[in-house]
Measured scan of single mutants.
Amino acid sequence: NQASVVANTLIPINTALTLVMMRSEVVTPVGIPAEDIPRLVSMTVNRAVPLGTTLMPDMVKGYA
């Protein structure tokens, strides 16, 4: 099973992502692959992402 990116904290809308905000976890449904974490750093989220939420491609500006 592939690990996905999961919010390690509440990420407010329009926040630039940092490494400490994200962790990898095997979850269903599958979200952004964990190997993309380095690429996500400094990208911003377009909605509030609660703790434990899987990051989906449409949640990160410029990812999809």
Rank of each mutant, 00 (worst) to 15 (best):
N1A: 15
N1C: 05
Q2C: 11
Q2M: 11
A3Y: 10
A3W: 06
S4R: 01
S4K: 00
S4D: 01
V5A: 12
V5H: 01
V5G: 01
V5W: 02
V6E: 01
V6Y: 02
V6R: 04
V6H: 00
V6D: 00
A7W: 02
N8L: 07
N8T: 10
N8D: 12
N8Y: 05
T9R: 14
T9D: 09
L10N: 08
L10W: 13
L10G: 11
I11R: 01
I11Q: 01
I13C: 10
N14D: 14
N14E: 09
N14P: 00
N14A: 11
T15G: 05
T15F: 11
T15M: 10
A16W: 07
A16M: 12
L17K: 00
T18A: 09
T18R: 09
T18E: 06
T18I: 05
T18V: 07
T18C: 04
T18K: 06
L19I: 06
L19Q: 08
L19K: 06
L19V: 10
L19G: 04
V20H: 12
V20P: 08
V20C: 08
V20Y: 14
V20W: 13
M21L: 06
M21V: 04
M21E: 03
M21I: 03
M22Y: 02
M22C: 03
R23Q: 04
S24N: 07
S24G: 08
S24K: 14
E25G: 09
E25D: 14
E25M: 07
V26N: 08
V26R: 03
V27I: 14
T28F: 09
T28M: 12
T28H: 07
T28A: 10
T28Q: 08
P29V: 06
P29H: 04
P29S: 06
V30R: 04
V30I: 13
V30L: 12
G31K: 02
G31P: 01
G31S: 02
I32P: 01
I32Y: 01
I32R: 00
I32T: 01
P33M: 09
P33F: 09
A34T: 07
A34M: 12
E35I: 13
E35D: 10
E35T: 12
E35G: 09
D36L: 12
D36F: 10
D36V: 07
I37K: 13
I37M: 14
I37G: 04
P38S: 10
P38F: 14
P38Q: 11
P38D: 08
L40C: 03
V41D: 03
V41A: 07
V41W: 03
S42E: 07
M43G: 03
M43I: 03
M43Y: 09
M43P: 00
T44V: 12
T44H: 12
V45K: 00
V45N: 02
V45D: 00
N46G: 06
N46Q: 09
R47L: 08
R47Y: 09
A48H: 14
A48G: 15
V49G: 01
V49H: 02
V49K: 01
P50G: 13
P50W: 09
P50V: 07
P50E: 13
P50N: 09
L51G: 11
G52T: 02
G52M: 05
T53Y: 10
T54P: 07
T54D: 00
T54M: 04
M56W: 06
M56F: 08
P57H: 12
P57F: 07
P57Q: 07
D58W: 12
D58G: 09
D58I: 12
D58Q: 09
D58K: 09
M59L: 06
M59R: 03
M59Q: 05
M59I: 05
V60I: 11
V60P: 01
V60S: 01
K61G: 07
K61I: 14
K61Y: 13
K61M: 14
G62L: 11
G62T: 05
Y63K: 03
Y63R: 03
Y63W: 12
Y63V: 04
A64K: 15
